[in-house]
């Protein structure tokens, strides 16, 4: 390799790294949660409505209603507000559909095979939480993960 050639390669590397660096967004997502935190819903839901997770990212431009449905008559009785989790009154199918509107079930299966076997009968919110900064289900490793299965699958002798 000639000297000029070698410098050429080094220069290419430098240019490539600079481009790579520039292509990353410079601000963290804590700042980006601003829009959703200013939502009118937060006037009442200050405590249980705080949205700190990835889904609050400004790039996604999600609003509370995107997941929880139209406000309608809420907070009066008989509204169609969608709630999530094991204790929710919303049917499991409706809950899952909200997530599957964006999340492709095939990609979910690649991430973890257990998505497939829970596709009917279990809602996403029974394992996952979007509001905290980090979804606790993603932090489970090794025996913590297998023990989380036992929470539902435990059979007494």
């Amino acid at each position: 390799m000639s000297i000029t050639n070698r410098y050429g390669v080094v220069l290419l590397y430098i240019v490539w790294f600079v481009l790579l660096w520039v292509s990353f967004p410079s601000h963290s997502f804590a700042k980006e949660t601003k829009t959703i935190a200013d939502s009118a819903c937060l006037k009442c839901h200050k405590r249980n409505g705080q949205m700190l997770g990835l889904h609050a990212n400004e790039g996604l431009a999600l609003t509370c209603e995107d997941c929880h449905g139209e406000k309608g008559k809420h907070p009066r009785k008989g509204t169609a507000i969608i709630t999530f989790g094991a204790k929710s009154d919303t049917p499991v199918k409706t809950q899952a559909e909200q997530c599957l509107a964006c999340h492709d079930h095939q990609l979910l299966a690649v991430a973890n095979w257990t998505h497939n076997v829970h596709a009917k009968g279990v809602s996403c919110g029974q394992c996952h939480q979007l509001h905290p900064e980090m979804d606790p289900a993603l932090l489970l490793l090794g025996s913590e993960l297998s023990q989380s299965c036992a929470k539902c699958h435990l059979t007494d002798i």
Partner: peptide, 14 residues
């Protein structure tokens, strides 16, 4: 050892 999935989504099993 896990094999699968068998069947069509959302009726799949392993």
């Amino acid at each position: 050892e896990r094999s699968g999935p068998f069947g069509e989504y959302p009726n799949q099993s392993y």
